[in-house]
Design a protein around this nucleic acid. Structure first.
Lengths: 143, 143
DNA sequence: ACTTGACTTAAAGTTAACTCTAAGTTGTAG
DNA sequence: CTACAACTTAGAGTTAACTTTAAGTCAAGT
């Protein structure tokens, strides 16, 4: 089974434009051409795009991804580099997740804050303020 | 306690340049000025920058953050909008975390794949290939 | 008084990753 | 056989978020 650039684009969620751009940047050296010069994409290329998309989604630049692709093309002599590439990138992604989770905590706090502010009417909030003031006064008096 | 633009930049992890840029974009309408026109940052401003940084870290654009800041400046009439703003953004961040975790799975798979490829010598891999071929043959014969 | 360093502004420059344009070729449906 | 959509290329344009530059002001130290 083979695909044209737009069929393939649909499959992997990229436009033909972006695929040509990726090819120009050296990310797709494995893509074949038809006798008339059209790009012919295969099932195997989907797997390549899955990993490229994964790296892209985790913030890796096109240049860095190219380094990995070049290693893949170079054959078994680069297995160790590729291993370390993923081990290093795993750390980056772990840090990203941790950062997002810390932000999530702040967002949850804000949601709780605004939820309370909304369920409480203005007069209730003012009443609460008055109660607090009363208690402060009593403390000061020594009661 | 108040801070100059560079002291404050150190505190919140941004350069004076970036702080001025944020102000120009309308993200910091709460920052005061000294009699000579210098920006004077306070402790309270740190809290503002914490939430701005949180929104920025979770992929929100400067323009979107400005919408939130404008609501804050407008007072209590925007409490409900602000509540929904965070509820909506929470969904975005949850999706981001989910996506990163899916990528993490692929990265872990790759690490495992390359680890195996490295611990196995080439001859071992070739032997494994031969064994598989033998088994295929036996199946075909009907053994 | 003078130098130094931090501040001010407006505006131009940078970078990555697309995204689009223009000009031309190819292949299939009517 | 002709229209028309989809493909090809090189190269220019776009966008966001900074980042730097240029030209100038201000306040503190020697």
């Amino acid at each position: 089974m083979s695909y044209s650039i737009s069929e393939f684009g649909q499959k992997v969620g990229l436009t033909p434009h972006t695929l040509r751009y990726y090819e120009k940047e050296g990310l797709l050296p494995f893509v074949h051409r038809s006798s008339s010069g059209l790009r012919v994409f295969t099932e195997k290329d989907i797997e390549w795009l899955v990993i490229i998309t994964c790296l892209k989604n985790t913030g890796m630049s096109v240049k860095q991804i190219k380094v990995f692709i070049d290693w893949c093309m170079a054959g078994d002599s680069t297995l160790e580099q590729r291993y370390h590439f993923f081990v290093d990138h795993k750390k980056v992604v772990q840090a990203q997740i941790k950062k997002l989770e810390a932000c999530m905590d702040k967002i949850n706090y804000k949601i709780e804050y605004y939820r309370k502010a909304l369920t409480q009417t203005t007069s209730e909030r003012q009443a609460h303020e008055r109660t607090c003031l009363e208690m402060e006064k009593k403390k000061l008096i020594g009661e």
